[in-house]
């Protein structure tokens, strides 16, 4: 029975978190401007190689 009660308590705690998360996301979009990421035009010739897949001799 303890497990059942703890699970229910957890769902209530999660509800509190989700409420803040939900309002926080809307708040951020609503009241904070300019935080969106944009492309970096000064970065040129970007190369990335997966060195872990290089065959070992």
């Amino acid at each position: 029975m303890i497990f059942v009660l703890l699970c229910y308590a957890a769902s209530i705690i999660a509800s509190v978190g989700l409420s803040f998360l939900f309002v926080g996301v809307i708040l951020e979009k609503s009241n904070s401007f300019g935080s969106n990421k944009e492309s970096v035009s000064c970065m040129k010739k970007f190369k990335l190689m997966d060195a872990s897949q290089t065959p070992k001799l």
Binding site: L6, C7, A9, A10, S11, I13, A14, V16, G17, L18, S19, F20, L21, F22, V23, G24, V25, L27, E28
Partner: peptide, 16 residues
Amino acid sequence: VISAALGLMGYGFARF
């Protein structure tokens, strides 16, 4: 289960 719920709550507060 409580720990997972607390983690979720913490994440919500962090966004705030």
